[in-house]
C-alpha cells in the first residue's frame, strides 16, 4: 500500500468512526465554566466603562452629539406610532368595562397612569433597543471585523473611552426625553378614542388626567427610563465588542443585543415594580 492509499484509508476510517459522546458531567462542567468566563468578561466590561466615566478629559463631544441625533431620528417615528396606538388600545379595552358602570371618564385615569408609569418607558425602551441598541452592536461588530477596534488599541486609545462612552451617555440622556414624548403620545391616543368614540369632551379628559397623574408618577417612569438607557447602550456596545470575526458575527451580535436588551428591560421593569411597591409609591 502506498503512502497516499494509507492516508486515504486512515481518513475514511476516521470519517466512519462514531462520534464519541461527552459524559453529562463533562458537558455540564464545560458549560458552567463557559458561563463563568462570560460573566467575568461582562463584569470586566462594566468595570471598564465605569472607570472610563472618570476619564472625562478627552471625551468626544461631537460623537456624543451625533449619537444623540441618530438615536432621536431612528426612534421618534416608531415611538410616536407605537405609543399613540398603545394609548388607543388601553382606552378601548378599559372603556368596555368602565362604560358598563357609567364610569367612562375614568378611562383617562387608567390610560394616564398605565402609560406614564409602565407603557411609555417600556415601549420607548423596546423601540430604542431595536433601533439604536442593535445599531450599536452592528457598528461596533463591523469595526471589530475590520480591525478598526484593534487599530485604536494599538494606538493606546481605549476603545471604551472612544466608542462606548459617547454612545452610553447619548442613549442615557435620550431615553428620558423619548419616554416623556412617548407618555404624551400615549395620553393623546387615549384622548383620541375617548373624545371620538366615548363622547367624553377632550377638555374633561385632559383635566381628569391632570388631576390623577402626578409628578411622582411621571418621575417613576423617567427614573426607570434612565436605567433602561444604560442597559440598552451597554448591551448593544458589549455585544458589538464581543462580535466574532466570521461572516455571521455581526448578525449574531445584533440579534443577541436586541434579545438581551428586551429581556433586561422587562426584568428591570419587574424589579422596579417591586421596589416602588415596597416604597409605597
Amino acid at each position: 500500500m502506498t503512502t497516499n492509499q494509507t492516508s486515504i484509508a486512515v481518513s475514511s476510517a476516521s470519517a466512519k468512526a462514531p462520534k464519541e459522546k461527552k459524559p453529562l458531567r463533562l458537558f455540564l462542567g464545560e458549560n458552567v465554566l463557559q458561563y463563568l468566563q462570560s460573566s467575568k468578561q461582562t463584569l470586566a466590561f462594566i468595570g471598564s466603562v465605569t472607570l472610563s466615566t472618570f476619564r472625562f478629559k478627552k471625551f468626544r463631544w461631537m460623537d456624543w452629539f451625533v449619537q444623540m441625533q441618530q438615536c432621536w431620528q431612528s426612534s421618534i417615528f416608531i415611538v410616536s406610532l407605537i405609543s399613540f396606538l398603545v394609548g388607543v388600545i388601553l382606552a378601548f379595552q378599559s372603556a368596555i368595562q368602565l362604560r358598563q358602570y357609567g364610569a367612562g371618564i375614568f378611562v383617562a385615569d387608567l390610560v394616564g397612569l398605565a402609560v406614564v408609569r409602565e407603557m411609555g418607558p417600556m415601549m420607548a425602551a423596546i423601540v430604542v433597543a431595536g433601533g439604536t441598541g442593535a445599531g450599536f452592536a452592528a457598528a461596533l461588530g463591523n469595526m471589530r471585523i475590520n480591525e478598526e477596534i484593534d487599530a485604536l488599541e494599538t494606538l493606546g486609545i481605549s476603545s471604551i473611552d472612544f466608542l462606548v462612552l459617547p454612545r452610553l451617555l447619548a442613549v442615557t440622556i435620550m431615553m428620558p426625553i423619548l419616554t416623556l414624548y412617548a407618555n404624551l403620545m400615549g395620553i393623546l391616543g387615549g384622548l383620541f378614542v375617548s373624545s371620538t368614540l366615548l363622547s367624553i369632551p377632550a377638555m374633561a379628559y385632559w383635566i381628569e388626567t391632570q388631576n390623577r397623574v402626578g409628578v411622582t408618577d411621571v418621575s417613576i417612569g423617567i427614573i426607570k427610563s434612565f436605567f433602561f438607557g444604560i442597559m440598552i447602550a451597554l448591551t448593544g456596545c458589549w455585544r458589538g465588542m464581543q462580535c466574532s470575526r466570521d461572516t455571521t458575527g455581526v448578525g449574531v451580535a445584533t440579534s443577541s443585543a436586541v434579545v438581551t436588551s428586551i429581556m433586561l428591560i422587562v426584568l428591570g421593569d419587574a424589579l422596579f415594580a417591586v421596589i416602588y411597591n415596597a416604597l409605597g409609591i
Binding site: 463591523n142 469595526m143 475590520n146 480591525e147 478598526e148 484593534d150 487599530a151 494599538t154 494606538l155 493606546g156
Partner: peptide, 20 residues
C-alpha cells in the same frame, strides 16, 4: 510605559482598519 512604547510603532493592518 506600554502606552509610551505603543507610540513608538505604527501598524498597517491587512484590512487597512481606517475608521470608516
Amino acid at each position: 510605559e506600554q502606552r509610551h512604547i505603543l507610540k513608538s510603532f505604527g501598524v498597517l493592518y491587512q484590512s487597512n482598519a481606517l475608521w470608516s
